[in-house]
Design a protein around this nucleic acid. Structure first.
Lengths: 222, 222
DNA sequence: TCGGCTAAGTGATTTAGTCACTTTGTGACT
DNA sequence: AGTCACAAAGTGACTAAATCACTTAGCCGA
């Protein structure tokens, strides 16, 4: 069945050392190579698309996706979020991120460690959307600073779940100024290598967010 | 395109309150309902299959999958694991699981909390494969005992990555007796509500695993 | 040099049909 | 009455040959 095909396509990508953004052979060509028809190859490609391993660009081609090397993924087919599910998400982050911040403070001392991106993410929160490097997210960069790419993926995935609705929720309670100050405090603790402070500040920061969400009357989402 | 279809299919599943294991309409019927052709509907179903939202059973039908409500997923299209990637996984678990154990010890006091499954998972490790309830995994059950389903998904996903190869690795270094004893110690700390002990014991347990993996000469995997 | 246009390549989808597998129910046999 | 073999219906798996829609790049003329 088409499971073999997905493996074969991934094999091509690996054999050729293709990186995210590189083009892969067209559907027609793949069909010819594997001696099957295009609908079948498309099914295999769709499976890969669902996990972010490849991307379609209509009229242009098929390309290697950004998350092809991910260990974990945000489920793209999640049900609509509820107040409970958002609180569960925050609860999970509350469990994980303090330890992440602690680790980031420890790893900061390592040779070659750089907190540039983390600092950029702090100031970034105040710049208007669409600005340069707006994609930088403080919590993801913090996880990145911990030095473990799997941890970064985990945090990144938790933040990707239903981004659109979550952004709407943020607009209801979000306090950009407070966020900025708390992010900066965490950043400084990490920079100073003060692991206990980084851990505690992160815990408090997320707890503030949790309380804000709990207080909000949950709106009906479109 | 087929993105609308996946949403529509998920809509059907939700409208009818279908649970994992329930059958969904056949591909032909869905094609008729949406006034499109079967290859197109199959593409949409393949995308859902890739994320575990649906399952195909040849000749029988299509069914709702087990992970349809998951927030995060283990990437089914992962590249072959290496020693480094296994160590990264353990590193991530070392960051997360101690806090999970701590939370489990705290949550244990909550009304309605039950450690039955966790205890079963402890003894389970010694029973031969294929025994009853062999599916219970201590670390997943520990995460479940923390009371946060998202945390359980995270741990479960981390353990699902390339299960087959990981199991082969375990055979090389695994010390079932030591694992059993350490699991039991963690269980008892959780049961006693001793959060610091649960946290510390979990940290030590995972560190033992990490050291064992580091010591092993990594084999060529099939 | 610049702008618009054409043509080739690609993904998106259709149509019509065949093959393979599972399940179920029927009927004959015990 | 009970059980087994077999046939039929329903379903997924895949093929084959086209057509439409979109993107890109290159060409041509102004």
């Amino acid at each position: 069945m088409s499971d073999r095909l997905t493996e074969a396509i991934l094999g091509i990508i690996r054999d050729r050392n293709l990186a995210p953004g590189d083009a892969i052979p067209s559907a027609r060509e793949l069909a010819k190579r594997f001696e099957i028809t295009t609908p079948t190859i498309r099914e295999a490609l769709r499976k890969l698309e669902a996990t972010g391993a490849v991307e379609f660009r209509h009229g242009s081609g098929t390309y290697v996706g950004p998350t092809i090397n991910n260990v974990v993924l945000a489920n793209p087919h999640r049900p609509p979020i509820t107040k409970d599910s958002v609180l569960q998400l925050i609860g999970a982050r509350l469990l994980i991120e303090p330890a992440v911040a602690r680790q980031a403070a420890i790893a900061q001392a390592a040779p070659g460690a750089s907190l540039e991106r983390l600092e950029a993410a702090v100031t970034n929160a105040l710049t208007p959307p669409g600005g340069p490097a707006f994609a930088l997210n403080f919590h993801v960069e913090l996880a990145s600073a911990s030095g473990n790419p799997v941890v970064e993926e985990l945090i990144s995935s938790l933040l990707k779940v239903r981004v659109r609705e979550q952004q709407q929720i943020r607009q209801l309670y979000d306090n950009r100024t407070r966020d900025y100050e708390e992010h900066r405090a965490i950043f400084e603790a990490v920079q100073a290598g003060d692991a206990p402070a980084a851990e505690q500040l992160t815990r408090e920061h997320l707890d503030h967010i949790r309380l804000a969400i709990e207080a909000v009357d949950f709106p009906e989402l479109p």
